[in-house]
């Protein structure tokens, strides 16, 4: 109560235009609160914006996460690009996970099929998820996956193994200073999240 009284005192004591002042204050506060809310939203908007940014620039070597159609008009036989495959298990997933071949030479525009071997060594069923990453990051935009086991989750029963395929081609537009391309898969245990 006394707070209100105090406040009133101040308002009286400002000057004769105190009511206009309060109106102005309220207006400004509302505008600023709007900015606050907008910036809070912007923080979250940065998530999709970041993805768009990554798509455009190939930042962090993110590749397409859904299948794309083969659209290359020809095969550029004059160029050869080395594509290397590496794998890594994140902590806590007891799978064997290896590329069947380590590297392959491709011509831009040429479609290739390679496979990866996985085996669940644990005594329980596990759902795995392979997360791809391409280096150099700029090449990610020119590496197109037509079919990939990384598009979906991979459930494997205890002790079972599987050969998983990846079909891809390298874009004809791949910048000429890129001659080696590395595709890495990190395997995660997502059993808990997927159930």
């Amino acid at each position: 109560m006394s707070i209100n009284k105090h406040k009133a005192n101040i308002n009286i004591s400002t000057n004769t235009t105190s009511s206009t002042n309060i109106n102005n204050n309220n207006k400004t506060v509302k505008k600023l609160l709007l900015v606050v809310v907008a910036m809070f939203g912007f923080g979250f908007a940065l998530v999709p914006l970041y993805d768009v940014f990554c798509d455009i620039t190939g930042l962090n070597g993110k590749t397409n996460d859904t299948a794309v159609a083969y659209t290359a008009s020809s095969v550029d036989k004059t160029r050869t690009v080395k594509v290397q495959f590496i794998t890594r298990n994140a902590k806590g997933i007891p799978w064997e996970f290896e590329p069947v071949i380590n590297e392959i030479n491709v011509h831009p525009g040429e479609m290739k099929l390679v496979s990866f071997y996985a085996k669940n060594n644990a005594s329980h069923d596990i759902v795995g998820q392979a997360v791809p990453s391409v280096s150099p990051g700029l090449a990610a935009n020119y590496f197109h996956k037509i079919e990939c086991f990384c598009f979906t989750q991979q459930p494997l029963s205890a002790g079972k193994d599987i050969e998983m395929s990846l079909q891809f081609y390298v874009d004809l537009e791949l910048p000429t200073d890129i001659n080696t391309l590395t595709l890495s898969y990190t395997l995660y245990d997502i059993t808990e999240k997927s159930s």
């Binding site: 298990n89 902590k91 806590g92 997933i93 007891p94 060594n121 644990a122 059993t191 808990e192």
Partner: peptide, 11 residues
């Protein structure tokens, strides 16, 4: 041998 997912315990 296999570690424990979601913890620092590695395989």
């Amino acid at each position: 041998f296999n570690g424990k997912a979601g913890t620092g315990m590695q395989a």
